[in-house]
């Protein structure tokens, strides 16, 4: 890149004038809340009656959270959910993306159509699948019974509900993996494949030894973004399971919302939110470092 324009006096004015609204907004909407969140997490108080004041609690909120089996249960559930849906999305997305590399009639149209689910509101997705997964009159169980299996109470039992949620998240977000995977595959020059063909490598060998490793940097971005998004998943569970049956499908995000807005244990909710933030920011840091490495290589 050539050198940037010199920030002379008008330039400096422009920088300040153009950036300050956004900076102010973000300070107010991101920095201030996060700062307050950390602050609250050391206090016992409830947003219901803030006038009652805030009692210093030290680390007790954190101690309580880390010793509470209910919270651990939610972390374990979130972990299972993340693992399941991200694995399914990655495999499915890479496969479909690979298949869509080949040209055939109507490919571009199909590709565009396949992108649709990720553009939908998670609430619509959640309710739509809740409707389809109904144990009595849902179309999924109808198909299940067509193949001669017994109907499954998908959303009424903890185990199937986890799978159902993962299937719905996979439905929504596999297109995202397809989108990134095809972009990554397109970036591999044709001669690389020709060389491999002449060298006598089978299609599977080429896929695992050349296509996958060479698209790894982009697929890694896809992976991290999906880890972040599925780890903080909230909307989908509100619409699909409402956290149930019981509390078996409550994610960490769900637990933060419930603690803060149903029980109004604001201090405790803040502490849990801080833990959630740290995990997400850790993943984000990995992503940012990866991106700057990628940038440096170009």
């Amino acid at each position: 890149m050539d050198t940037a324009l010199k920030p002379r006096s008008t330039g400096r004015l422009m920088i300040v004038g153009f950036l300050s609204p956004t900076v102010l907004l973000l300070l107010f909407m991101v920095a201030y809340p996060i700062f307050s969140l950390v602050h609250y997490s050391f206090y016992n108080f409830s947003a219901l009656n803030p006038d009652k004041g805030m009692d210093w609690a030290g680390l007790s909120n954190y101690e309580y959270l880390l010793s509470d089996s209910g919270i651990w249960k939610r972390f374990v559930f979130t972990g299972k959910f993340v693992f399941l849906c991200v694995t399914m999305q990655m495999i499915l997305g890479i496969f479909v993306g690979y298949r869509l590399q080949k040209t055939f009639r109507g490919r571009d149209l199909l590709f565009t159509a396949l992108m649709l689910p990720m553009m939908l509101s998670p609430v619509v997705a959640g309710f739509l699948w809740r409707y389809m997964l109904n144990s009595e009159w849902g179309v999924v169980n109808f198909l299940v019974s067509l193949f001669g299996f017994a109907k499954v109470d998908w959303l009424g039992q903890a185990g199937p509900a986890l799978w159902a949620a993962a299937v719905v998240d996979t439905w929504m977000w596999t297109p995202f993996i397809i989108l990134l995977a095809t972009a990554a595959f397109r970036g591999i020059p044709e001669t690389i494949y020709e060389a491999a063909e002449v060298d006598g490598a089978s299609a599977a060998y080429v896929f695992f030894r050349i296509t996958l490793p060479m698209s790894a940097p982009v697929l890694f971005i896809a992976l991290i973004l999906r880890l972040i998004d599925s780890f903080k998943q909230y909307d989908l569970f509100v619409a699909l399971t409402g956290g149930g049956p019981g509390s078996s499908t409550e994610t960490v995000s769900f637990a933060v919302a419930k603690t803060a807005f149903s029980y109004f244990y604001t201090g405790e909710a803040s502490a849990l939110a801080v833990i959630l933030l740290c995990i997400i920011m850790g993943l984000a840091m990995i992503l940012v470092r990866h991106l700057s490495n990628m940038g440096a290589r170009h």
């Binding site: 020059p189 001669t191 060389a195 030894r209 050349i210 490793p213």
Partner: peptide, 13 residues
């Protein structure tokens, strides 16, 4: 047969 291409076709990884 073996072939060498005009533009480098080594596997970068």
């Amino acid at each position: 047969i073996a072939m060498v291409f005009q533009f480098v076709s080594l596997y970068p990884h």
